[in-house]
Nucleic acid binder design. Sequence first.
RNA 1: UCCCCGAUAGCUCAGUCGGUAGAGCAGGUGGCUGUUAACCACCCUGUCGAUGGUUCGAGUCCGUCUCGGGGAGCCA
Length: 463
Amino acid sequence: MRHIRVAQLLSLDKGEDNIIVMGWVRTRRDSKGGFSFIEVNDGSCLGNLQVIADSTLPNYQDEILKIQTGCSVKVTGKAVPSPGKGQKMELQAKSLEVLGWADPETFPLQKKRHSFEFLRTIAHLRPRTNTFGAIARVRNAMSIAIHKFFQERGFLYIHTPILTGSDCEGAGDMFRVTTFELDKIPFKDGKPAFEQDFFGAPSHLTVSGQLEAEIYALAMGDVYTFGPTFRAENSNTSRHLAEFWMVEPEMAFCDLEGDIRTATEFIKYILKYVLENCREDMDFFNNFIDKTIIDTLENIISQDFRILTYTEAIDILTSSGEKFEYPVKWGSDLQAEHERYLCEKRFHCPVVLINYPKDIKAFYMKLNEDNKTVRAMDVLFPKIGEIIGGSQREESYELLLSRIKEIGLNPDDYWWYLELRKFGSAPHSGFGLGFERLIQFVTGMANIRDVIPFPRTPGNISF
RNA sequence: UCCCCGAUAGCUCAGUCGGUAGAGCAGGUGGCUGUUAACCACCCUGUCGAUGGUUCGAGUCCGUCUCGGGGAGCCA
């Protein structure tokens, strides 16, 4: 007896006896010829295994005829080439044991299509659907591809902290972490007495591992982080989560051009990996979610990304003749409609925008010689907008210090970050990529809440 | 957080001019078939999101709230 997964069984090139398969029933069809077809899925692949259960099985009348969508079963039998259409192999059951029943009156999943909104309310059951099974497999493959890409290039995987004492990372509102009883917080001089809290200081969930990654880049060379990130912003969109996963490479002795090269190669590598390793799931997305998704991915792999300076982008937008709701002006941030015009209408490919005005970018970005712009880079994708944000970092102690003061931050809070520029400073660059946004792009899924198993958004922490 | 749209059977939705609700799917029963989103017939299914108001009468009109969707902002 050999327990194998459905994916393995379906790819057998000849029959094999004494096989055990375990999984969940998707549908049952009875033949009055004296047997039933039972389709079993075990998550190993999109396709179901067709099990043939003959009426001579001892529990045929009592159990097998009562099997419904959702039951878990253990099937022992012989894998044989299927005489029917639609599958190469099938399993002739010698025994079929129901491990867990699913009352059809109350089991919420049906054989028909459900809305994603409904499935979100049953996140404990939605991975048993075709779409969410496919997403889980693609998400897994993309995670592996991320590690493969960096490991093949000698990057070191760094675990940066989830809990942070720096409340000034500057990338948005943070979740507070405390062990205080909320109804009896100790106060001192009208403020919470943080010195009595667990860490003895105000503490938060991280909004980025970048600053810590820089520490390791300036010791190990090329490093990357890949982990959860938290933003307490009240964002209610199809592209935002309060908890999401971010990939953040950081490279020593690397300038903005090297940063762009890595980002471009990285994205293409991931897309290629998914197309090569998740063909069945990608065909599914292409058929049922977005009819152009495979073409789109193949196009992006074969195309060069368009690199433009912020100033060039402003010129293109102002001379485009296009009517925008928000005016285009040098010095103000580009709106979603502007980014969409560049990607979708003008260049029909991903666009890399560089050299943004310093006032609309973070303090740690390296100042250009013009003293007005910084060595920033945003990678803009059609439909989903900004997917990567990165920059060459300011490596000059004096310039970084004056930038920190200029925007009103306290240099004491950044003492260790500043010291990196004092002792053996070196040019270095990095970027952050929103993992779920890339999954959205790869699968064609419209809502980011459907590409993470358990989405956290304002007002939603169930499951 | 702002703008727009929506909430009706387990699911997906229709519901006209204000007159106490319907279809498909699912489920049940029977039939049929190496079937494969199976098919055919019959049967069952409702706090019309919550709350207040207008009205003889509200799923329908008005106010408030909750939740969801699309867009915007913030960003990845």
